[in-house]
């Protein structure tokens, strides 16, 4: 009963925010719609006992990512709101065909029962996504024979590499300046603080 009410309310917020992202002429409104969607999804995560994921969702997505988006919207500017009209002639029809195709494919999968949502083997064990549970799964070494324990350790270490590469790449892109024709070829490019 409670879950039904939450599902209906938050589902409405989720879809309204998502439609807002796609429909809004002003990207700032789109970012606000995206934030509403992300918050509603965080509520769903709490319903699913994934508390840590819900907290991370609010902090990382609704906090950091939306702020980053708003900064870039501020930088790029919203005064020249783009038209919703399409210049490429075939883009709209092809996009609609693709979307309808996805709907039909999903419907076929559901109707034919290829995609089985029902868990047959009784009630599943309750998983609680607490910090202890998540942390144990992430970085616990365990005994050498226990392969389950260190299942996520290598991906976890790989994400550190990914984040470093992404940070360095973003900084390199931010400092890259195309040389103008009237500019004399300068010496070695110096970063900030020099």
């Amino acid at each position: 009963m409670v879950e039904l009410v939450i599902f209906v309310l938050m589902g409405a917020v989720t879809l309204a925010g998502a439609i807002g992202v796609v429909r809004a002429r002003n990207p700032v409104y789109g970012a606000m719609g995206l934030m509403a969607t992300l918050f509603a999804l965080a509520v769903f995560y709490v319903v699913h006992l994934a508390h840590f994921v819900a907290v991370v969702q609010v902090i990382v997505y609704a906090g950091a990512v939306i702020t980053l988006f708003l900064f870039v919207i501020m930088f790029v500017g919203v005064d020249r709101a783009e038209d919703l009209k399409e210049k490429l002639a075939v883009q709209r029809p092809v996009a609609l065909i693709v979307l309808v195709g996805v709907v039909v494919l999903a419907g076929v999968l559901v109707v034919t029962g290829r995609f089985d949502w029902v868990i047959s083997s009784g009630e599943p064990p309750v998983v609680r996504g607490t910090i202890e549970e998540i942390g144990e799964n992430l970085i616990s070494i365990g005994s050498p024979s226990d392969r389950q324990a260190s299942r996520w350790l290598l991906p976890f270490e790989a994400t550190s590499l990914l984040l470093i590469v992404a940070a360095v790449g973003a900084i390199a892109l931010a400092f890259y300046r195309p040389r103008r024709k009237d500019e004399p070829p300068a010496g070695p490019d110096t970063g900030p603080g020099s």
Binding site: L15, A18, I19, V21, V22, A24, P27, G30, F69, V72, I73, V76, E82, L84, E86, K87, Q91, R92, A95, V98, L99, V102, V103
Partner: peptide, 15 residues
Amino acid sequence: LIGSGGLLLRNNALV
């Protein structure tokens, strides 16, 4: 589906 529709139909890189 809504997300992919926005990806295909909008032409602002941010959106």
